[in-house]
Nucleic acid binder design. Structure first.
Lengths: 197, 197, 197, 197
DNA sequence: GACTAAGCGAGACGGTACGTCGCGTCTTAAA
DNA sequence: TTTAAGACGCGACGTACCGTCTCGCTTAGTC
């Protein structure tokens, strides 16, 4: 299944589709960055991207789906923390990465209500983000257990919630900063909560 | 019943004001319960309450402020857990109460984006809810420290986030259930994380 | 039921309604005159009149209703031909007036399909125009019968159709001119068709 | 039924062309019958006929041209009334045939505005229909004159208008029925209007 | 019997207008 | 003075079709 010379079988006919999709996503990202998710408008995207409104609606059902696509695109780009040989460092990396992502462009803040409310978006978010993150945490925790750092009965789901829940709480409600110190505190607490012995 | 000179001196405003305010809030609550925060509309409230739109705008700047009033009203109604003589039970009570409240009528889900986004609402939410909850947790934790259950350097803010963060994460993102078992798991983890010695 | 001094009971509150209605109708008339009924657009009317689209839709269900209002307004403005003492001259006056009206601004041409097709508009047109014209013809014919010019069993409805049918046929299909000579020919034919004896 | 060398020599173009044209016209007729001319849509025709939109546009400039093709096709199918030896009967046949045609599928009602409005369609309709009908009436009237039933100076054009004008007026505006009795009344009136002597 | 050009299906695209919703402002008359 | 009533300008929604425009595939008709 190696990619031989003839490798554009997917390029069906024109690249029109791809060109306009790129323009739409770029305009969307710009608008969100400038005015927040609340200022995201299909008409605005159409105007800025030079694409017809209809073309946007041909690909995304509505405003929220478009925003979700951006969100998933941004979020999914991050990879699992590798095996660093140090459980605490791995969890810290995870938390810091998560922090960085959820702060970006205030997209999460603007979309969380729709995600929590529209079954359609809930499912997409869960499958594309929550489950992926969970798997990342699981691999780190499994290594921690193997190293004898964490107790074998550690509940990955709860550990995940304890790691990221505080971040979202600060982001959405308390307004407290998401910084290195906080990440340290959270990881320390989780390490103690699930320490072996 | 003519308006004679000697009116009740305590009846400050008019009575009309209170009557219509009551009607507005009731209609708002009903609409949120029936159709969620997204289905809450000033026009709908006016129609259902028999009050003019103008009257609503006279009291609340906009849709979000009205919804926030309802949210704060509901949330603030809950009181601090009393001294039960048992740190774990006190924290569990706190978590279970918080669970119950945030699930109510899906108001939090519908409003979180606005809360996280509008500085106006952020501040109101922080002062009226976050700080109050934090104080409640603090009193429970202080008692826990005094009893020798928790370490004296326990960071109340982080402890609070670890207690409620998982709830919000489930509510808003993962969709996992908020039940007694989960509350137990979270409280156990926090107890271990901040156990004395 | 005479109009006494106090005669503006209908002027409910502001004249805003009337002002915007006037602006809408004026813009509509202009657009029809410039570009025909086919070029009549709610958005165009809104733009030209400085009135919001919603305000237009508040008064007329859609494009066709608005155009019909203009049509009826124009058409209904004409009155029955008076008793001229001469049957032929009365019928000729009727035909010439009808000619003039139906040519105006090409509104009839643009609307006829909708009138013939939408039950809603059909009924309005019939009640507001057809029946009125019929009554006008009837009074002329009745006088003609009384004068001994026309046969007593003249069918008014058919006579009416014979008088105006040719006009509409020229207007809509054959494109032949609607002028004095044609009016004469038509009236002469009708006079002969229903001559007494 | 294999395609041997000796295909019909007359089969000029390709066969594909004819096949898709047939499919288009059939779908068009069905759509008009089901939903009226207003419900006729190029996209609908393409969908129903299994033909690409492009193919339709290759043959007809737009929606109206396609509809007109159908209209002319239906209307032109009728032939001139033969010499029946009776002027009144011949005119009656003409009127009844015209009645039947113009009621069919409400096509005339739906198209009349376009016919009256688009110079392109006006001309086509005039040449393909009006003039043809006029010739038919002329031959009947010429025979009537020859027979001594009608006056020699009978204006064929006006007679035609008097015969069909009432039909169109009923069809498009008054909504009165097009039936045998009405045809009789119209023909009687025209016979009297142009009777010899 | 193979080659080549026309005809075709598919469907993406920019565009215009639709009719709707709810916003927040404003004006008036009654209470 | 406060209210109910409701008209208004406005911005955006998501939809329906329009007519145009590549694309490659199919299919005759010619060599």
């Amino acid at each position: 299944m190696t990619e031989t010379a003839n490798d554009q079988p997917a390029k069906r006919h024109s690249g029109r589709r791809e060109r306009s999709e790129k323009a739409i996503l770029e305009a969307t990202r710009e608008l969100i960055a400038e005015r927040g998710v609340g200022g995201l408008t299909i008409e605005g995207v159409a105007a800025r991207s030079g694409v017809a409104k209809t073309t946007i609606y041909r690909r995304w059902r509505d405003r929220d789906e478009l925003a979700l696509a951006i969100l998933i695109d941004m979020t999914a780009a991050v990879n699992a923390p590798p095996d660093l040989g140090d459980t605490r460092r791995e969890l810290l990396t995870f938390v810091k990465t998560a922090s960085r992502i959820i702060k970006a462009d205030r997209i999460v803040q603007g979309l969380v209500s729709e995600i929590a409310t529209e079954p359609h978006l809930s499912r997409a978010y869960r499958e594309r983000i929550v489950d992926v993150r969970l798997a990342e945490v699981k691999s780190a925790i499994d290594r921690g257990i193997a190293r004898g750092d964490l107790r074998p009965d550690t509940d990955v789901r709860v550990a995940h919630e304890l790691l990221v829940g505080p971040l979202f709480y600060r982001l959405l409600f308390s307004g407290a900063p998401l910084n290195k110190a906080h990440a340290d505190q959270v990881v320390d607490a989780v390490m103690r909560a699930f320490a072996a012995r």
